[in-house]
């Protein structure tokens, strides 16, 4: 059975725009430049210098911050001597306790589960790749990251925390906790990691490793 894959050995491979489907030849890659669709202007890919390594470093750092951000209270509220503090998971549980199971599930999913699994999947893919190995289940992890990414909303949550602090600040005294700063740093790290993750580079490296392991090429074009 012949493989339907279109050649990837070509120095100017054909690529199709994901937004308008136009076929075009990829120009010679230059580090630090983006390749955009000729017709609709969508960004097709970008060449970075060691983007995947930076992405891995930031993913690991983000993992540590994620743990800190979830382990400590985000804010402490004080009103006439009564104090209340909450962690992110505590907030989910408070919603659950009010029979807002659906909203609690939505918050848990978008701020804890998806970001945690995404960080795990990214480290799983990029860690072994750094040492020249393709992790088992890499393609599954990759597809998972691609479809889960829009649902991780830590940056929106961070803005929500700031808005609620502003709302509360004239009712009671609010004291930001360790987790709030961790969330702030986490938002920036996640944005930096996402911007240095270039699927094009990931697959170029995986393809190169596969070609090394199995010298007979599986291309027909």
């Amino acid at each position: 059975m012949d493989n339907p894959r279109v050649s990837t050995a070509d120095p100017h491979p054909l690529i199709a725009c994901h937004d308008c489907d136009l076929l075009q030849r990829a120009p010679a890659p230059q580090i630090g430049t983006s390749v955009c669709c000729r017709r609709c202007g969508a960004r097709l890919y970008r060449m970075t210098r060691d983007g995947l390594d930076r992405c891995l470093a930031m993913t690991l750092a983000a993992g540590v911050l994620f743990i800190v951000a979830n382990a400590f209270p985000i804010v402490t509220l004080e009103l006439q001597g009564v104090r209340a503090a909450t962690t992110l998971f505590g907030a989910v549980r408070a919603l659950y306790a009010q029979h807002m199971e659906l909203v609690a599930a939505l918050v848990f999913f978008t701020t804890i589960l998806v970001p945690a699994l995404e960080l795990l999947a990214m480290s799983w893919m990029l860690g072994p790749l750094k040492f020249g190995r393709v992790a088992p289940g890499l393609s599954l992890g990759y597809r998972w990251v691609r479809s889960a990414r829009p649902w991780g909303m830590i940056e929106v949550f961070m803005l929500g925390v700031l808005v609620s602090l502003a709302k509360l600040s004239h009712l009671a005294s609010v004291e930001p906790g360790v987790a709030l700063w961790s969330f702030g740093a986490l938002v920036m790290l996640l944005a930096a990691a996402a911007s240095s993750f270039e699927p094009h580079e990931l697959w170029a490296r995986v393809d190169a490793l596969a070609a090394e392991a199995d010298p007979q090429p599986m291309r027909i074009a």
Binding site: L77, T86, A91, F157, G160, S164, K167
Partner: peptide, 28 residues
């Protein structure tokens, strides 16, 4: 699209923080 979730998170934080027994209570 995702930024519309803002209010959901605001409610989440308010609900979790403002349950100061006799003083004030916020419910979703």
């Amino acid at each position: 699209g995702r930024w519309s979730m803002l209010d959901i998170y605001v409610v989440t934080i308010l609900v979790a923080l403002v349950h100061l027994q006799s003083l004030a209570e916020i419910e979703a």
